[in-house]
Design a protein around this nucleic acid. Structure first.
Lengths: 132, 132
DNA sequence: GTCAACCTTCCACCTCACTGGAACCGTCAA
DNA sequence: TTGACGGTTCCAGTGAGGTGGAAGGTTGAC
């Protein structure tokens, strides 16, 4: 399959696929006689994994690490598990901090709702954002 | 107070404070006779707000917008409220996507747990990451 | 008076994940 | 055979949020 077909299967652009190849995330695909990149199912699987992993918050580098461990075939499960565990706690921390942020924003909003907009005319302070 | 003191109160570096000033996020502070930046409580409050807002997922630009609206003193409450509302839904979306990612990672981890590590010796595929 | 630890400016560089554009070649249907 | 729409390379830029380092001035304790 050609680059655009591969890209559209996964929901990225051909540019992005070439970029991934340039950073070593995708291997050199074979080429057709005319020099076009020619991808197989393995490329699709690899790219799909990168996309999934990215959706799960892993960086391209980390996806590459997992994929490389897989290709090297050593320590794979333990390393993958460790990476996964680290990301699970990262995600938990992110969710916690977002929820704290949410609460903060909500409190700010509540103040904005309660305050009479007419009170908001002091040219030097906004009641919502002001001293806290 | 001097730049490092301000910075350490908020948990950033002096470099970062100068950078914030350079992008207009913090106003020119006064200077001592020798040219050192001299900050007051207002700078601390402003920088703290930027840090809080950043923790809440706002960009530096957006923090600056709120702070500018506050300084300009017009339309403040409505604009702040709109910004806050937009960010609340952004945060909700982020939390939702992180929770989806979490579930995905957890599923991957569960596969890692169930599989016998001894099965993970095939040099060409990792059971955890492989075909799905 | 000396020394470390601070401060100043300025400019360049970094990471991440792309994106845009130029200049050129290949494919395919009308 | 012409034109649209792909593909190729390479280089440069984006934007967010900084960091590093050089070259110099200031402060304060011993």
């Amino acid at each position: 399959m050609r680059i655009s077909e591969l890209a559209s299967h996964v929901g990225v652009t051909a540019k992005t696929v070439r970029y991934y190849e340039s950073i070593g995330l995708l291997p050199d695909p074979g080429r057709t006689a005319s020099g076009y990149r020619d991808y197989g199912a393995d490329a699709l699987e690899r790219l799909t994994f990168v996309r999934d992993a990215q959706a799960a918050g892993l960086s391209l580098k980390e996806s590459g690490q997992i994929l490389d461990m897989k290709a090297a075939g050593h320590g794979t499960c333990e390393h993958t598990r460790a990476l996964l565990d680290r990301h699970l706690s990262d995600i938990d921390a992110q969710i916690a901090s977002l929820e704290a942020a949410r609460a903060e924003l909500l409190a700010l909003r509540a103040r904005a709702d309660i305050l009479n907009p007419a009170d908001c005319t002091d040219p030097h302070r906004c009641q919502v954002v002001g001293s806290h």
